[in-house]
Design a protein around this nucleic acid. Structure first.
Lengths: 215, 215
DNA sequence: CCGGATATTGACCGATTGGTCGGGTGTTGC
DNA sequence: GCAACACCCGACCAATCGGTCAATATCCGG
């Protein structure tokens, strides 16, 4: 019988991975049963064990996959050129958009980071982290060496600030949404634009900043 | 027998709650068995059901407790007076310190926020959120009305930025630690000082800021 | 010293868990 | 035409899960 003439490749394996990714991104490791994965994938539970030796291995494969995809996704967001401030704007925008585009991946990887008991695959998560982090730091250093940015701040600190703003926005979006004075919960582009603007110009009025020189 | 002459109050219940809090803060709901909680509390599993009708109720009680404690803990960090910029510095510092002082509470509540499948008690979490958020917004608005801060930015946005910076630091600390260019992973006070300084003064050199007036 | 409430327990329950096993389907190479 | 192979499944397993229950142990007011 050929009920569903789907893809030709290692099709079964991929189906399992997709099903597992979906379930694992919604609920924690122990909350997802092998049976549920089998049902979601439309196959028998025993069949999963034809492709993966045990549940941990399956979870690890899912995580490895997600981590890799997320990594390339985020790295793609970095590429830009022009004035450093524009690169910064573009970076923030694309980074956040990447997070919002694939929330399952982000949740999957981020849960792994937060979990204390079992560091199943923190290495993966940290890789992607280091990637995007160092890219951002490089941008900031360029800005400093070109004189477009102050030189008296730590680029790593600013990178943390910017990344944190995006991750926090991603995580708290639902909460932010029904908190009245917040108008940007559904406007990630506007959010990042505002964030970057504040970062660049600061909160203190220019008039009261101690200035050493004028243009 | 009086093996362990512990506290006198509703002592049994408290023991269970403490044990459950510890375990639930380390691992997810389904990963913590009632048996494990009983062992941790040094009592029998059946005894738990004398105080709590079922596992969900116990988890909810733990969460309610943690949420309440965290809430008051964070609210205490808000109280300060003086120049707005100083209040801001103090706020950031105390807020982060509060997070780091009771990591179990934070992890417990934050996991609840992130979990998609079962919004068991998002209300609790959101309460504490709104508290600290509105307090911070109030501070910023005061600063704006006093002329100490720019008026052309959204206070809610800055509040998100600052809170996000602290939460992100809390969450990613382990990763940040073994990433070479980061020197502030073990210096939360220095981190916040740097963050606030950047927020206040901005990244762009004062000389190239478009200034409307001089002091 | 007693009697009723409160604590506490071991033994037990049905359901579900991760995982195994033997045997069934194709399809492919010889 | 048949052996070898990857693929797939129903049935089964011991262990553990959340939860129940009847039976004790402990306490405290009269």
């Amino acid at each position: 019988m050929e009920d569903l003439p789907l893809a030709i490749e290692g099709e079964g394996r991929q189906r399992i991975l997709a099903a597992a990714e979906k379930l694992f991104s919604d609920k924690a490791f122990d909350a997802v049963s092998m049976n549920a994965i089998a049902v979601q994938a439309g196959i028998s539970k025993a069949n999963i064990y034809h492709y993966f030796p045990n549940k941990d291995a399956l979870y690890l494969a899912v995580l490895r996959d997600a981590s890799h995809n997320l990594r390339t996704l985020l790295n793609d967001a970095v590429n830009a050129h022009g004035a450093v401030v524009d690169v910064l704007r573009h970076f923030a925008r694309c980074h956040l958009q990447a997070l919002l585009d694939r929330p399952e991946l982000v949740r999957l990887v981020w849960r792994e980071i937060l979990e204390k008991g079992a560091p199943r695959a923190q290495e993966f998560a940290e890789q992607g982290f280091a990637d995007v982090f160092s890219a951002l730091v490089a941008v900031l250093e360029t800005g400093q060496s070109r004189g477009e940015l102050r030189v008296d701040f730590d680029p790593a600190l600013v990178a943390t600030l910017l990344l944190g703003a995006n991750v926090f926005f991603f995580q708290s979006r639902d909460i932010l949404r029904h908190y009245p004075p917040i108008i940007f919960a559904d406007d990630p582009a506007g959010y990042d634009a505002g964030i970057v603007e504040i970062l660049l110009r600061g909160l203190i009025p220019a008039s009261s900043v101690d200035m050493a020189s004028t243009r």
